[in-house]
Design a binder for these strands. Structure first.
Lengths: 236, 236
DNA sequence: CAGATTATGTCAGCCCCTGACATTCGGCAA
DNA sequence: TTGCCGAATGTCAGGGGCTGACATAATCTG
């Protein structure tokens, strides 16, 4: 571990299909740290959990913790990071005929669904990620760190969109603008989700995302006074 | 100063038009802190400037610094916060007939222009804010803090939009969605601006913002392959 | 098995930030 | 003016995040 471990992005299975003991142990402690941190955060809150606690819960020195994660934020966001990677993969696999906006929408829905079906509960599952999401919104520093991660993810989305449609993202602003809109739409949906009383699970999140997408057009067009305008009314 | 000073939002001139010595001194040290911090940040960078340096540059204890600002980030973002307040004011003053999206666009353009004309240079001027913006994008923790501020500002925008159009922001997602889209559009423009070599001043920023707005429709609609589609091509 | 890599532990230390308490300063009325 | 009250500041102690440096122990390679 010369520099910081940059999060194991599913090591390519080429070259050596036996990862070796060293590599396995690293992955192991990393997972253990995420697990322990996750548990502590959820039980006592993010701010009231110290890095020392996390480290000693895994029988590891504090210094070692910081060799795996750049800071306390990172270990909290680690679970979400995996989900985001999967979303990008989904986006890459969308058929080229699909309109860009639709490809984004389909990818995000599919990734939530797939992750939800993969392992509905237990550690590292979707529900863990959802609990995390709620916790993040309760902690200002985590909100900040999360937003930063999200915007970096958006850069990736810009790349993928540009490749997909064969345009140059430097000259053509459309990929950038669309990625930005998409990102903010997702965040709105997340906020709505965390604002709900009942957790509602992955399907609830999907429903919220869809609703937000459906309101994109109406929000951009015309005035809103007229209640019978766009079917945007879903009063209780 | 019982709790933290919550940033003097232009004290209402009612009740006593002479703010009193105490109040004046407070404002004074606050400004001095922002000034000193600003200078130090720009000359040595954000991370390499300690709070002690800032405090002693104003002949004030470190503890006092933290009674004015919740953290080091806040003093760096203080200048921008003023600009954002002015934007909100502009938005409130837009005529009700204007379409929501247009009101947002007009407000942001007007606020940049007005602030640019107010005091083109010197401390606390627009150019200071622009320098700050560039610095922020160079510093990951500042990016995070800035994004958090921006999203809180968005909540305000949601409120104003909802009032304007007479809708309930809880039931009707349109204000939320539009505010989110607007926020991400602005951030894209800021990023483009900081990516440029030549600073280009407030007018350059306005131009970029307008360009981003103009690409909103084309980005959301249809495919992009066809180069003659929406006039979205401005190749060099 | 020996040497090269690499992960980990230990330690010292800087810096951010906070609570508690004492002190000083501005505002205000007798 | 004087004296009091509340508010702003200073000082001190301390916790917690994070890093560099160095030694040690574990893995890998031949």
């Amino acid at each position: 571990m010369a520099a910081r471990t940059p999060r194991p992005v599913r090591p390519p299975e080429d070259l050596c299909r036996a990862p070796g003991l060293r590599e396995r142990k690293k992955q192991q402690t990393r997972d253990a740290l995420v697990q322990a941190a996750h548990g502590l955060f959820l039980s006592q809150g993010f701010a009231r959990t110290t890095v020392d606690e996390i480290a000693s819960a895994v029988d590891v020195s504090q210094r070692t913790f910081f060799r795996y994660f750049a800071n306390k934020d990172e270990v909290a966001l680690a679970v979400l990071a995996d989900a985001e990677d999967y979303f990008i993969e989904c986006l890459r696999n969308r058929p080229a005929e699909e309109l860009p906006l639709q490809a984004l929408r389909a990818s995000i829905v599919k990734s939530w669904r797939d992750l939800g079906n993969a392992q509905p509960s237990g550690p590292g599952s979707i529900n863990s990620a959802l609990e995390l999401l709620r916790m993040i919104e309760d902690s200002p520093p985590l909100i900040a760190a999360h937003l930063r991660r999200v915007t970096e993810q958006e850069r990736l989305v810009v790349q993928v969109l540009a490749e997909r449609e064969g345009v140059d993202p430097v000259q053509d602003l459309r990929p950038t603008v669309l990625a930005a809109v998409f990102g903010s739409l997702l965040r709105s949906a997340h906020l709505s989700w965390t604002a709900e009383q009942e957790p509602a699970g992955p399907e609830g999140m999907v429903a919220l995302i869809e609703r937000h997408f459906d309101h994109l057009g109406p929000a951009l067009a015309g005035h809103w006074h007229d209640p019978a305008q766009d079917g945007a009314q879903d009063q209780a």
